[in-house]
Amino acid sequence: MILDDLVNATQQNMLKRREKKSLNSLKKEVNNIPSSNTFSFEKNLNQSNISIIAEIKQASPSKGQIVSPEKFNYQQIADDYKNAGVDAISVLTEESYFKGSLGILTDVAARNDIPTLRKDFIIDPYMIYEAKVAGAQIILLIVAILTDDKLGEYLSLADKLGLSVIVEAHNDEEIKRAVSARARIIGVNNRNLKNFTVDFNNTIRLRKLVPADILFISESGIKNRTDVETLEQNGVNGILVGETFMRATDKIAKINQLRGHE
Rank of each mutant, 00 (worst) to 15 (best):
M246N: 05
I52D: 02
N190A: 15
R182P: 00
V188P: 10
G152A: 05
Q47G: 07
Q233E: 14
I138W: 04
K223Y: 05
I222Q: 04
V67Q: 08
R182V: 09
A212G: 03
T197V: 07
N171Y: 04
L161Q: 11
R182I: 04
Q58T: 02
M127T: 00
A183I: 12
L140Y: 10
D199L: 10
D172I: 05
S48H: 12
Y154H: 11
L140N: 12
L105C: 03
E94N: 12
L146W: 08
E42L: 02
I239G: 14
E95F: 05
N24M: 11
Y81Q: 09
L6T: 09
T106R: 15
T197W: 07
V165N: 04
N202I: 10
F196S: 08
K176D: 13
Q76C: 00
E70N: 14
L209A: 08
V7L: 10
I52Y: 03
A78G: 13
K43F: 08
E42A: 08
S90A: 08
S96V: 14
A134W: 10
Q75T: 14
I139W: 02
G152F: 07
F72S: 04
K132Q: 07
M246Y: 09
Q12D: 07
L117E: 03
Q47C: 05
N237Q: 02
A59H: 06
D80Q: 14
T226G: 00
Q12P: 00
N24Q: 14
G235W: 10
L193Y: 06
S36V: 11
I2N: 04
S35L: 07
L23H: 07
R118Y: 04
R259Q: 08
V188K: 04
Y126T: 03
K21S: 07
L157S: 07
N13H: 13
D124C: 06
E174G: 06
G187K: 09
D227K: 09
